[in-house]
Design a protein around this nucleic acid. Structure first.
Length: 387
DNA sequence: AAGCCCCGCAACCGCTTTATT
DNA sequence: CAATAAAGCGGTTGCGGGGCT
């Protein structure tokens, strides 16, 4: 499946852009939109390849780019997200609305990475370097735990991109505590919070035992994570109850019949095409492909990961068995009786943020780690000098 | 003043993913 | 369903500017 490089043609210019070229590109896009990038250079009178034009536009010329020094808050957000996601620059950029992935990547490589190193923190694992050797298990667990949040954030970022063109539809059900997977614009009313970390905390907080355990673990890094507001315009975890938005019709819909308003019912076409579901306490989650549904998506906070999994599964898995397997592979489902991985027909417990009725069998160490991290963060006065 | 070195950033390269035919 | 095109993404490169000797 080869594809010839887009700049192969002789005569195409490379290297730094001149102001004249910038002007041509901006003028063309302002008037016509970019359309097909490949076709753009000829139409705009540029001796560049489409890829070069796209990069120049997305990384530099786009009017909604904020340039200049990164604020402390932005730095903290980058560090936090990098700890969870690794080098997923585009996903991280989705949480810093006016910054480009390229800019964030550069800033990380030239500033933040060095700063962490100087502080004795491994910029890859985000753990104190002295911990790295003796706690490899912790590191792998951290990575394991981060998988789900990573998946969620990536799915979220995808939905956000796709939803930019959508029209807001008015719909509201009777269920309280709505959580939506996408959002068109940032919500100023979102309360300051460490949404990612708190999401984790909720996932592990079945008991309060950890409150008194390991109070000093990773305290240096916890200090670095201190923040007043992790800006997360797409966060699923900070929305005030009662908020409701439609899921993008271009992205498809994740839904759960039992959480839908009683007046809406799932079309019969659902199961046929997207026989994708994840069972949960609320009943099965399903995914409806784009164009087939325009209802409002309403999720209970605790089911967010199940919904995301249903969505992801719709793209890559064909049967319930596959989805179940995917869930099992991610340690999402556990046998409620034995604490081991459940067979499909078993009565399985679902990881559930309220912790009340679910069976969470992750290592206690992970719980303690994240809880201690959050406790430390919460205990610190807001606006603590970190750097 | 000249040469050298380091750093930051824009841009490129090539691989992967997604969309289209 | 496979092939192809287009776009996305992350790693890397190389240029230009500033500081140091």
């Amino acid at each position: 499946m080869g594809r010839s490089p887009c700049c192969e043609k002789a005569g195409l210019k490379k290297g730094p852009w001149t102001p004249e070229e910038d002007q041509k590109l901006m003028a063309y896009i302002e008037e016509h939109g970019h359309g097909s990038w490949r076709a753009l250079p000829a139409k705009a009178g540029l001796q560049r390849c489409g890829k070069s034009c796209r990069l120049r536009w997305t990384n530099y010329l786009r009017p909604d780019i904020k340039r200049g020094k990164f604020s402390l808050q932005e730095e903290q957000t980058i560090i936090q997200l990098h700890a969870l996601l690794g080098n997923k620059w585009s996903t991280i950029a989705a949480h810093l609305p006016k910054r480009t992935d390229n800019e964030i990547k550069n800033y990380w490589n030239t500033h933040l990475k060095k700063r962490l190193t100087k502080m004795g923190i491994d910029p890859i694992t985000h753990r104190p370097k002295t911990d790295a050797f003796g706690h490899s298990k912790d590191s792998s667990n951290l990575s394991h735990m981060a998988q789900w949040e990573s998946a969620r954030l990536e799915a979220e970022a995808r939905l956000v991109r796709e939803s930019k063109l959508q029209l807001v539809q008015n719909q509201l059900g009777s269920k309280p505590a709505r959580l939506i997977l996408n959002k068109i614009s940032p919500q100023p009313s979102v309360p300051p919070c460490l949404d990612v970390l708190k999401a984790w905390q909720r996932s592990w907080s079945t008991n309060s035992q950890s409150d008194k355990d390991n109070p000093r673990i990773h305290n240096i890094y916890a200090m670095m994570l201190t923040t007043d507001d992790l800006e997360s315009p797409t966060s699923t975890l900070c929305f005030p109850e009662g908020t409701s938005l439609p899921i993008s019709p271009t992205a498809g819909t994740i839904f759960n019949d039992n959480l839908l308003p009683s007046t809406t019912t799932a079309p019969a076409t659902t199961a046929a095409k997207s026989s994708v579901s994840c069972d949960s306490d609320e009943g099965p989650w399903k995914y409806l492909p784009k164009g087939e549904d325009n209802r409002v998506l309403s999720l209970q906070d605790d089911n967010i990961m199940m919904a995301v999994e249903a969505f992801r599964a719709a793209a890559g898995y064909n049967s319930n068995n596959d989805v179940m397997e995917a869930c099992l592979n991610h340690d999402l489902l556990y046998d409620s009786n034995e604490g081991g991985v459940a067979a499909e027909e078993d009565n399985v417990g679902i990881i559930n943020g309220d912790g009340g009725s679910c069976n969470v069998n992750f290592e206690e160490n992970n719980k303690q780690y994240w809880n201690s991290l959050l406790n430390l963060v919460n205990d610190l006065p807001s606006g603590s000098p970190v750097f």
